Simulated scan of single mutants.
Amino acid sequence: MVTKDDATTAWIRRYHPSGGSTVRLICFPHAGGSASFFHPVSARFSPDADVVALQYPGRQDRRREPCIEDIGVLADLLVEEIQALSDKPTVFFGHSMGAVLAFETAFRLEQQGVKRPHSLIASGRRAPSTRRDEQVHKRDANGIISELRLLNGTDSAVFGDDELLRMALPAIRGDYRAIETYTCEPGRKVRCPITVLTGDADPKTTLEEAIAWRPHTEGWFQVKVFPGGHFFLADHQAEVNNEIARELEAARSAGQSAPAGR
């Protein structure tokens, strides 16, 4: 089954469909996040790029579906969805949990030799090989809310609406369980280049932990540091978009000289 270039599915969200584009950006949301987080990114890069925002089960219109609490299982399912897309040079962009999920998805696609990304942008997340003893998913509701406030990544309107918060908490808890129980196989790396974006005051990622992404790629590598915390990209969207634009242009140029997906 092939997903058309202008199609939206349960997993694939296109807020500004652009079937005639020659390059693709696939966006992986953070823990508790949804595809709509990337609506501004879609608006910025469409119609020149086919911007695909992924919608995981357990949130928004998929809230009645069980949340997938295992990064490997979720990556396997995303591989199936991405394989159904048309061949276009592709850049992966993932924030926080989404960065690890993008890495695991890229690894699987490279192993299968199909639809592998041209490059990966890992935002707001320490390297897959680094470890911290984090147990947020085991906290009660108030404990999880405190974590969200610390990271400042949830719309303040959600905190003021008990019903919205109750609807969101199961997915948030499930995502935290997925990322906090994730372990990276020793030596796992991808061939595609990796750009790491990090905030200089992010409580979840030190500069050393950001640099630790380096052994996870056989390709070109760089780290960009921005002022701010875990959601630094909210205050530096223009600069983050510039990084995305550079990667998309590099993918487009590469696609003109080699078959897409290689």
Rank of each mutant, 00 (worst) to 15 (best):
P128G: 08
R108L: 09
A84Q: 10
K88T: 07
Q135P: 09
D76A: 14
V114G: 06
E104W: 06
F107E: 11
V100C: 11
R131S: 12
R108D: 09
E81A: 11
K115H: 12
K115Q: 11
S119A: 13
I68T: 11
F93K: 01
V73Y: 09
D140Q: 07
P89V: 02
Q112F: 09
I121R: 00
T105L: 01
D87Q: 10
H95M: 09
F103N: 02
S123N: 07
R125M: 13
E69K: 10
I121S: 02
S123A: 10
S119F: 02
L101W: 03
R125Q: 14
N142G: 14
I68F: 02
E69C: 10
E69H: 08
F93L: 08
V79F: 03
K115E: 04
A102Q: 03
S86F: 01
D70A: 06
K88W: 02
V100F: 10
A102S: 12
A122N: 05
F92K: 00
V79P: 09
V100S: 10
T90C: 08
A106D: 06
R126H: 12
Q111N: 15
I121C: 04
N142C: 13
L109E: 04
R139I: 08
F107R: 13
L101N: 04
A127W: 01
V73P: 05
F103K: 01
R126G: 11
H137P: 13
Q111L: 12
I68L: 10
R108T: 08
L74G: 04
D87L: 14
L77N: 14
V91H: 01
G124R: 01
K88S: 10
I71D: 04
H95C: 10
R126Q: 12
T90L: 02
G124H: 02
S96H: 04
R116E: 10
Q111T: 14
R125D: 08
F93E: 03
P89I: 01
D140K: 06
E134L: 15
E110P: 12
E110A: 06
Q112K: 15
A75L: 06
E134Y: 14
D87N: 10
P89F: 00
K88F: 03
G113A: 05
A141K: 13
N142D: 15
H95P: 09
V79M: 05
T130V: 13
H118C: 08
S119V: 03
A102N: 05
E81I: 02
G94Q: 02
I71M: 14
Q112G: 11
F92A: 00
Q112I: 11
R139T: 11
V73Q: 12
A84N: 08
G124P: 04
L78N: 07
P89T: 04
V91W: 00
L85E: 06
I68W: 01
K138V: 13
G98M: 03
E80N: 12
F93Q: 01
S96T: 06
E81W: 00
P89A: 04
S86N: 11
L109R: 00
E69Q: 13
V136G: 08
F92H: 00
I68M: 05
G94W: 00
T130W: 08
E80S: 12
R126A: 11
I82P: 00
R132P: 11
G94A: 06
E69R: 11
S123L: 05
F107T: 11
Q135A: 14
E80A: 15
H137Q: 05
